[in-house]
Amino acid sequence: MNEILDLIAGLLVVAGSVFVLAGGIGALRMPDFYTRIHGASLTDSLGPVLVLGGLMIYAGLSLIAVKLAAVMLFLLVTSPTATYALANAALLSGLRPEGVEKTSTDPETPA
């Protein structure tokens, strides 16, 4: 039983690191700044959830799991905020996205 749980936890952590690694590759090979953010945000969404979630299964029900949950919650709240601040600062400074089609001029944008 314990071995199975450990195996699941290990698989989750490795899956998370695969997403993180793919995000790193994306941040390196995407063509322009805004698409690179998409690559980097890959490392900020499911990667931490899987890695820290897997570690929580390793830890079992304990104070360590609560701490891991706190770290995960903090990362999930702050990383989109930091990303938004970064993208917004770049936009305001006049850095234009490349090769973009703008579909927002339609009068009836669904809410």
Partner: peptide, 13 residues
Amino acid sequence: GNSITLTPGTLTI
């Protein structure tokens, strides 16, 4: 705004 950024592929600017 945060949810849009948190799902990769879409980004709030």
